[in-house]
Design a protein around this nucleic acid. Structure first.
Lengths: 143, 143
DNA sequence: CAATCCGCGTTATAACATAACAGACCAATC
DNA sequence: GATTGGTCTGTTATGTTATAACGCGGATTG
Protein backbone atom coordinates (compact mmCIF):
# COMPACT_ATOMS: atom_id res chain seq x y z
CA UNK A 1 0.00 0.00 0.00
CA UNK A 2 1.38 3.36 -0.91
CA UNK A 3 2.01 6.04 1.61
CA UNK A 4 -0.84 8.01 0.12
CA UNK A 5 -3.36 5.25 0.39
CA UNK A 6 -2.26 4.78 3.96
CA UNK A 7 -3.21 8.38 4.52
CA UNK A 8 -6.58 7.83 3.02
CA UNK A 9 -5.92 9.72 -0.15
CA UNK A 10 -7.25 8.65 -3.47
CA UNK A 11 -4.85 7.17 -5.91
CA UNK A 12 -3.74 9.72 -8.44
CA UNK A 13 -5.03 8.99 -11.88
CA UNK A 14 -2.53 8.85 -14.69
CA UNK A 15 -4.68 9.81 -17.57
CA UNK A 16 -4.36 10.64 -21.15
CA UNK A 17 -0.70 10.61 -21.83
CA UNK A 18 0.07 10.84 -25.48
CA UNK A 19 2.28 8.25 -27.09
CA UNK A 20 5.46 10.28 -26.74
CA UNK A 21 4.68 11.29 -23.20
CA UNK A 22 4.05 7.67 -22.31
CA UNK A 23 7.35 6.58 -23.80
CA UNK A 24 9.31 9.19 -21.90
CA UNK A 25 7.40 8.50 -18.73
CA UNK A 26 8.10 4.78 -19.01
CA UNK A 27 11.79 5.38 -19.41
CA UNK A 28 11.90 7.60 -16.36
CA UNK A 29 9.82 5.31 -14.21
CA UNK A 30 12.25 2.47 -14.75
CA UNK A 31 15.38 4.56 -14.38
CA UNK A 32 17.46 4.14 -11.27
CA UNK A 33 18.79 7.67 -11.36
CA UNK A 34 17.95 11.04 -12.87
CA UNK A 35 18.30 11.18 -16.62
CA UNK A 36 19.14 14.02 -18.94
CA UNK A 37 16.83 14.72 -21.83
CA UNK A 38 19.42 13.40 -24.22
CA UNK A 39 19.88 10.20 -22.24
CA UNK A 40 16.14 9.73 -22.45
CA UNK A 41 16.29 10.40 -26.15
CA UNK A 42 18.82 7.58 -26.55
CA UNK A 43 16.37 5.22 -24.88
CA UNK A 44 13.39 6.14 -27.00
CA UNK A 45 15.19 6.23 -30.29
CA UNK A 46 14.20 2.60 -30.76
CA UNK A 47 10.59 3.73 -30.51
CA UNK A 48 10.99 6.17 -33.32
CA UNK A 49 11.73 9.42 -31.56
CA UNK A 50 14.57 11.25 -33.18
CA UNK A 51 14.79 14.85 -32.07
CA UNK A 52 15.40 16.56 -28.73
CA UNK A 53 12.23 18.57 -29.19
CA UNK A 54 10.12 15.48 -29.04
CA UNK A 55 11.59 14.57 -25.69
CA UNK A 56 11.54 18.10 -24.33
CA UNK A 57 7.92 18.55 -25.29
CA UNK A 58 6.94 15.36 -23.54
CA UNK A 59 8.98 16.35 -20.51
CA UNK A 60 7.37 19.78 -20.39
CA UNK A 61 3.98 18.20 -20.16
CA UNK A 62 5.03 15.60 -17.61
CA UNK A 63 6.62 18.24 -15.44
CA UNK A 64 3.52 20.39 -15.74
CA UNK A 65 1.39 17.58 -14.43
CA UNK A 66 3.94 16.75 -11.72
CA UNK A 67 4.52 13.23 -12.92
CA UNK A 68 8.12 14.20 -13.43
CA UNK A 69 10.41 16.62 -11.67
CA UNK A 70 13.33 18.49 -13.05
CA UNK A 71 16.46 18.58 -10.95
CA UNK A 72 17.78 22.01 -11.75
CA UNK A 73 21.20 21.43 -10.34
CA UNK A 74 21.72 18.39 -12.53
CA UNK A 75 19.81 19.39 -15.62
CA UNK A 76 18.13 16.05 -15.32
CA UNK A 77 14.70 14.58 -14.78
CA UNK A 78 13.20 12.02 -12.41
CA UNK A 79 9.85 10.32 -12.19
CA UNK A 80 7.94 11.57 -9.20
CA UNK A 81 8.49 9.11 -6.40
CA UNK A 82 5.98 10.59 -4.04
CA UNK A 83 2.38 9.70 -4.76
CA UNK A 84 1.25 12.52 -2.54
CA UNK A 85 3.33 15.17 -4.13
CA UNK A 86 0.42 16.87 -5.80
CA UNK A 87 -0.85 17.53 -2.31
CA UNK A 88 2.31 19.23 -1.21
CA UNK A 89 3.25 22.69 -2.24
CA UNK A 90 6.85 21.75 -2.44
CA UNK A 91 9.05 18.74 -2.70
CA UNK A 92 12.68 18.39 -1.73
CA UNK A 93 15.46 16.31 -3.19
CA UNK A 94 18.49 14.89 -1.48
CA UNK A 95 21.05 14.05 -4.11
CA UNK A 96 23.95 11.78 -3.24
CA UNK A 97 27.10 12.94 -4.94
CA UNK A 98 28.72 9.57 -4.48
CA UNK A 99 26.17 7.08 -5.77
CA UNK A 100 23.86 9.40 -7.67
CA UNK A 101 20.77 8.29 -5.83
CA UNK A 102 18.02 10.81 -5.32
CA UNK A 103 15.69 10.82 -2.37
CA UNK A 104 12.51 12.78 -2.90
CA UNK A 105 10.70 13.87 0.21
CA UNK A 106 8.14 16.30 1.49
CA UNK A 107 8.28 17.76 4.96
CA UNK A 108 5.38 19.62 6.48
CA UNK A 109 7.58 21.51 8.90
CA UNK A 110 9.84 22.77 6.18
CA UNK A 111 6.85 23.67 4.08
CA UNK A 112 5.40 25.63 6.94
CA UNK A 113 8.58 27.60 7.50
CA UNK A 114 8.57 28.61 3.88
CA UNK A 115 4.94 29.56 4.14
CA UNK A 116 5.80 31.84 7.01
CA UNK A 117 8.65 33.45 5.19
CA UNK A 118 6.34 33.96 2.23
CA UNK A 119 3.76 35.60 4.42
CA UNK A 120 6.30 37.95 5.97
CA UNK A 121 7.90 38.93 2.70
CA UNK A 122 4.84 39.27 0.50
CA UNK A 123 6.42 37.05 -2.12
CA UNK A 124 3.87 34.98 -4.01
CA UNK A 125 5.30 31.55 -4.45
CA UNK A 126 4.55 29.59 -7.55
CA UNK A 127 7.14 26.90 -7.46
CA UNK A 128 10.03 25.93 -5.23
CA UNK A 129 13.13 23.92 -5.98
CA UNK A 130 15.01 22.47 -3.03
CA UNK A 131 18.02 20.38 -3.87
CA UNK A 132 20.33 19.17 -1.16
CA UNK A 133 23.64 17.72 -2.23
CA UNK A 134 25.86 15.57 -0.10
CA UNK A 135 26.21 11.95 0.86
CA UNK A 136 23.38 9.55 1.47
CA UNK A 137 23.44 7.53 4.65
CA UNK A 138 24.97 4.50 2.98
CA UNK A 139 27.73 6.38 1.21
CA UNK A 140 28.50 8.47 4.28
CA UNK A 141 28.99 5.26 6.28
CA UNK A 142 31.52 3.98 3.78
CA UNK A 143 33.49 7.20 3.71
CA UNK B 1 26.27 49.53 9.24
CA UNK B 2 25.78 46.16 7.70
CA UNK B 3 23.57 43.54 9.19
CA UNK B 4 26.65 41.53 10.05
CA UNK B 5 28.37 44.31 11.88
CA UNK B 6 25.19 44.89 13.76
CA UNK B 7 25.40 41.29 14.88
CA UNK B 8 28.92 41.80 16.07
CA UNK B 9 30.51 39.78 13.33
CA UNK B 10 33.73 40.75 11.73
CA UNK B 11 33.56 42.09 8.25
CA UNK B 12 34.44 39.44 5.73
CA UNK B 13 37.70 40.17 4.05
CA UNK B 14 37.76 40.19 0.28
CA UNK B 15 41.28 39.19 -0.30
CA UNK B 16 43.49 38.25 -3.11
CA UNK B 17 41.23 38.11 -6.07
CA UNK B 18 43.15 37.67 -9.26
CA UNK B 19 42.66 40.09 -12.09
CA UNK B 20 40.09 37.96 -13.88
CA UNK B 21 38.23 37.14 -10.71
CA UNK B 22 38.14 40.83 -9.84
CA UNK B 23 36.76 41.73 -13.25
CA UNK B 24 34.00 39.16 -13.04
CA UNK B 25 33.24 40.06 -9.46
CA UNK B 26 32.96 43.74 -10.36
CA UNK B 27 30.52 43.00 -13.15
CA UNK B 28 28.34 40.91 -10.88
CA UNK B 29 28.43 43.38 -8.02
CA UNK B 30 27.04 46.10 -10.22
CA UNK B 31 24.48 43.95 -11.97
CA UNK B 32 20.86 44.44 -11.13
CA UNK B 33 19.91 40.88 -11.91
CA UNK B 34 21.51 37.48 -12.26
CA UNK B 35 23.80 37.14 -15.23
CA UNK B 36 24.75 34.17 -17.33
CA UNK B 37 28.41 33.39 -17.81
CA UNK B 38 28.15 34.51 -21.41
CA UNK B 39 26.51 37.78 -20.46
CA UNK B 40 29.40 38.37 -18.08
CA UNK B 41 31.80 37.52 -20.86
CA UNK B 42 30.26 40.22 -23.03
CA UNK B 43 30.92 42.74 -20.28
CA UNK B 44 34.54 41.82 -19.74
CA UNK B 45 35.48 41.54 -23.37
CA UNK B 46 36.57 45.16 -23.24
CA UNK B 47 39.02 44.17 -20.54
CA UNK B 48 40.63 41.56 -22.71
CA UNK B 49 38.84 38.38 -21.76
CA UNK B 50 37.85 36.36 -24.75
CA UNK B 51 36.89 32.81 -23.91
CA UNK B 52 34.14 31.26 -21.78
CA UNK B 53 36.75 29.33 -19.83
CA UNK B 54 38.22 32.50 -18.46
CA UNK B 55 34.88 33.53 -17.07
CA UNK B 56 33.94 30.09 -15.84
CA UNK B 57 37.23 29.70 -14.05
CA UNK B 58 36.80 32.98 -12.26
CA UNK B 59 33.22 32.08 -11.39
CA UNK B 60 34.28 28.71 -10.00
CA UNK B 61 36.61 30.41 -7.62
CA UNK B 62 34.15 33.10 -6.62
CA UNK B 63 31.46 30.50 -5.99
CA UNK B 64 33.92 28.44 -3.95
CA UNK B 65 34.60 31.38 -1.70
CA UNK B 66 30.89 32.26 -1.51
CA UNK B 67 31.33 35.68 -3.00
CA UNK B 68 29.04 34.58 -5.79
CA UNK B 69 26.13 32.17 -5.93
CA UNK B 70 24.93 30.15 -8.84
CA UNK B 71 21.21 30.07 -9.45
CA UNK B 72 20.74 26.58 -10.76
CA UNK B 73 17.29 27.14 -12.11
CA UNK B 74 18.44 30.08 -14.22
CA UNK B 75 21.94 28.97 -15.13
CA UNK B 76 23.01 32.34 -13.89
CA UNK B 77 25.14 33.94 -11.24
CA UNK B 78 24.65 36.65 -8.62
CA UNK B 79 26.97 38.46 -6.28
CA UNK B 80 26.30 37.43 -2.73
CA UNK B 81 24.03 39.99 -1.17
CA UNK B 82 24.23 38.69 2.32
CA UNK B 83 27.36 39.63 4.22
CA UNK B 84 26.68 36.94 6.77
CA UNK B 85 26.16 34.16 4.34
CA UNK B 86 29.39 32.43 5.18
CA UNK B 87 27.94 31.96 8.63
CA UNK B 88 24.83 30.27 7.39
CA UNK B 89 24.77 26.74 6.18
CA UNK B 90 22.29 27.59 3.52
CA UNK B 91 20.94 30.52 1.66
CA UNK B 92 17.63 30.83 -0.14
CA UNK B 93 16.66 32.76 -3.23
CA UNK B 94 13.31 34.21 -4.16
CA UNK B 95 13.26 34.85 -7.87
CA UNK B 96 10.60 37.11 -9.34
CA UNK B 97 9.45 35.79 -12.66
CA UNK B 98 8.02 39.16 -13.63
CA UNK B 99 10.83 41.62 -12.95
CA UNK B 100 13.75 39.24 -12.62
CA UNK B 101 14.77 40.52 -9.22
CA UNK B 102 16.35 38.09 -6.83
CA UNK B 103 16.03 38.30 -3.09
CA UNK B 104 18.66 36.38 -1.18
CA UNK B 105 17.84 35.49 2.37
CA UNK B 106 18.79 33.20 5.19
CA UNK B 107 16.28 31.93 7.70
CA UNK B 108 17.29 30.22 10.89
CA UNK B 109 13.99 28.42 11.23
CA UNK B 110 14.21 26.96 7.77
CA UNK B 111 17.79 26.01 8.36
CA UNK B 112 16.85 24.23 11.51
CA UNK B 113 14.11 22.23 9.85
CA UNK B 114 16.57 21.03 7.29
CA UNK B 115 19.02 20.16 10.02
CA UNK B 116 16.37 18.04 11.64
CA UNK B 117 15.51 16.28 8.46
CA UNK B 118 19.20 15.64 7.92
CA UNK B 119 19.54 14.17 11.37
CA UNK B 120 16.58 11.87 10.86
CA UNK B 121 17.63 10.68 7.46
CA UNK B 122 21.34 10.28 7.97
CA UNK B 123 22.06 12.32 4.88
CA UNK B 124 25.26 14.34 5.14
CA UNK B 125 24.59 17.70 3.65
CA UNK B 126 27.31 19.51 1.80
CA UNK B 127 25.40 22.15 -0.06
CA UNK B 128 21.80 23.18 -0.47
CA UNK B 129 20.10 25.08 -3.23
CA UNK B 130 16.74 26.65 -2.48
CA UNK B 131 15.18 28.60 -5.28
CA UNK B 132 11.67 29.92 -4.96
CA UNK B 133 10.01 31.23 -8.07
CA UNK B 134 6.99 33.44 -8.16
CA UNK B 135 6.15 37.11 -7.90
CA UNK B 136 7.85 39.60 -5.65
CA UNK B 137 5.68 41.80 -3.49
CA UNK B 138 5.76 44.68 -5.92
CA UNK B 139 4.92 42.66 -9.00
CA UNK B 140 2.22 40.73 -7.18
CA UNK B 141 0.57 44.02 -6.24
CA UNK B 142 0.44 45.11 -9.87
CA UNK B 143 -1.01 41.85 -11.09
C1' DC C 1 -17.69 24.54 -41.79
C1' DA C 2 -14.30 27.53 -40.16
C1' DA C 3 -11.48 28.62 -36.27
C1' DT C 4 -8.69 27.17 -32.67
C1' DC C 5 -5.92 24.34 -29.97
C1' DC C 6 -2.79 20.82 -29.23
C1' DG C 7 0.50 17.48 -30.29
C1' DC C 8 3.69 15.74 -33.85
C1' DG C 9 8.01 15.66 -36.82
C1' DT C 10 11.78 18.06 -38.68
C1' DT C 11 15.80 21.14 -39.46
C1' DA C 12 18.52 24.38 -37.67
C1' DT C 13 20.56 27.03 -34.13
C1' DA C 14 21.14 29.05 -29.60
C1' DA C 15 22.85 28.86 -24.95
C1' DC C 16 25.52 26.74 -21.41
C1' DA C 17 29.76 24.31 -20.03
C1' DT C 18 34.10 21.66 -20.19
C1' DA C 19 38.40 19.15 -22.24
C1' DA C 20 42.92 19.53 -23.23
C1' DC C 21 47.27 21.74 -24.13
C1' DA C 22 50.87 24.98 -23.14
C1' DG C 23 53.02 28.99 -21.02
C1' DA C 24 53.77 32.40 -16.95
C1' DC C 25 54.26 33.23 -12.29
C1' DC C 26 55.41 32.49 -7.50
C1' DA C 27 56.54 30.22 -3.28
C1' DA C 28 58.84 26.40 -0.94
C1' DT C 29 62.70 23.71 -0.41
C1' DC C 30 66.65 21.06 -1.71
C1' DG D 1 70.21 29.39 -7.39
C1' DA D 2 67.93 25.43 -9.48
C1' DT D 3 64.03 22.56 -9.21
C1' DT D 4 59.58 21.35 -8.11
C1' DG D 5 54.72 21.97 -7.39
C1' DG D 6 50.78 24.76 -7.40
C1' DT D 7 47.82 28.15 -9.30
C1' DC D 8 46.32 31.25 -12.73
C1' DT D 9 46.40 32.32 -17.61
C1' DG D 10 45.20 32.12 -22.64
C1' DT D 11 43.61 29.46 -26.46
C1' DT D 12 41.30 26.15 -29.60
C1' DA D 13 38.11 22.83 -29.92
C1' DT D 14 34.28 20.27 -28.48
C1' DG D 15 30.51 18.54 -25.70
C1' DT D 16 25.99 19.13 -23.55
C1' DT D 17 21.56 21.22 -22.78
C1' DA D 18 17.67 23.66 -24.72
C1' DT D 19 14.81 26.29 -27.96
C1' DA D 20 13.18 28.62 -32.51
C1' DA D 21 10.55 28.15 -36.32
C1' DC D 22 8.03 25.84 -39.93
C1' DG D 23 4.37 22.98 -41.54
C1' DC D 24 1.19 19.00 -40.88
C1' DG D 25 -2.79 16.60 -38.97
C1' DG D 26 -6.37 15.38 -35.74
C1' DA D 27 -9.76 16.82 -32.15
C1' DT D 28 -12.97 20.19 -30.31
C1' DT D 29 -16.21 23.60 -30.54
C1' DG D 30 -18.66 27.82 -31.75
Amino acid sequence: MSQCEAHGHVKRSEPSLTKNQQLVWDVLRHASAPMSAYAILDEVRADGLRAPQQVYRALDKLVDTSLVHKLESLNAFVACAQPCCAEHEMVCFAICEACGSVDEFADDQIEQQFAEWTKRSGFVRRQTAVEIKGLCKGCAAQA
